[in-house]
Design a protein around this nucleic acid. Structure first.
Lengths: 194, 194
DNA sequence: CGAGAAATGAAACGGGTCGTATCGTTTCGT
DNA sequence: ACGAAACGATACGACCCGTTTCATTTCTCG
């Protein structure tokens, strides 16, 4: 009896679970509607109209399920070469803002990262999906701007992305300040001045 | 029998609990050593050598206790007039970095903010202690810089503080990037350019 | 189509936490 | 020295986690 619980955290294969889509969506609904600490497996199972055992058959624990559910909606698209550095950077900032648009989901990210602190391999994958993948695309756009001569050659792509994502996350999580056009424009301008 | 459980969340009076200091410290120790999700009331009580009932006698729940325990070490000092704008800003950035120096405590802040989402009055006090109080002091330093002509009159003190704190928190919580001298210097320079 | 395999929903479990209540004891203020 | 307040221990019901069992439904493919 080799019923191995497949550990699919953020993998690409889509093998078993018949109700995977339903379960992912249920997790996001509970999260957005009742918060991270109310996200119980029983609540997710109930919302998905599914037995708890079905969830545990496909995900090893709550963190893995949530990471899968979030990865599905977290945008990490490539930024096309528009020939216009400013427009490309604006698109990058907008993409980041979109990722944090839903407060429930945004709050879950650091909470999840914190819970993952004792699962190093999961934390590494989490960062890959939620940070590095997206950052690579944005870095490409930034480099195009440098090549065009629009951005200073000394630009620190890591710093500018920390500034962008950090400010957006901080407003969402802590101050509750606005995530609007004005902020987006100012963040874009930052890249030209730093 | 009017044994009213005094609700002292972040107040200044220090009335009853004989073991308050011990309990606060125990909460911080458990938090730093085993993480937010391992911060149980029983663990805190055990670490403080105190009965659980004693904690519940003075704090209504875990969030309130933790908010008190964190407020005690969160720095929101005034920044003295040094006559040197750059030096004052550096001090402001260093203060913010200090507040996020301990990873365990830093991670607790957004987690706590998230848990407080359903306690609006607690959330308001949380923000007062952890955000506005400190921000007022930093804003004062920024305004001095503007008055000296060192900083542009158009400076957005809210934005610059979001940039500072956001970047620092983001590195601590998400990327794990360095919080060092180099970052501090770059953040300071930001104020002169934005 | 039909039979075997795989996935499923329901239910129950031990272990653990929360917040409350109730003890008998220790410490404080006066 | 005495009464009131704070204390520690302990037990409670309610809830949740993560696992297991089991009878039923749904797939798969010969």
């Amino acid at each position: 009896m080799k019923r191995v619980v497949s550990f699919r955290f953020m993998s690409d294969e889509t093998p078993g679970p018949r109700g995977a889509a339903r379960i992912h969506q249920a997790a996001r609904e509970v999260l957005a509607g009742r918060g991270y600490s109310a996200l119980t497996m029983e609540a997710v199972a109930a919302a998905a109209g599914v037995g708890k055992s079905t969830i545990y058959r496909w995900w090893p624990n709550k963190e893995a399920l949530l990471a899968d559910a979030l990865a599905e909606v977290f945008k990490g698209e490539e930024i096309p070469d528009l020939g216009d550095t400013r427009a490309e950077l604006r698109r990058a900032v907008d993409m980041t803002m979109d990722n944090y648009a839903d407060a429930g989901l945004a709050i879950a990210l650091p909470a999840l990262a914190a819970d993952l602190a004792r699962h190093p391999e999961l934390l590494a994958r989490f960062r890959e999906v939620f940070l590095w993948r997206k950052r690579g695309n944005i870095a490409a756009a930034l480099h195009r701007g440098v090549d065009r001569g629009d951005l200073p050659a000394t630009l620190d792509t890591d710093l500018i992305q920390d500034l962008w994502a950090g400010t957006i996350m901080y407003r969402r999580l802590m101050t509750g300040g606005p995530l609007d056009d004005d902020l987006a424009e100012r963040l874009v301008q930052l890249a030209f001045k730093v």
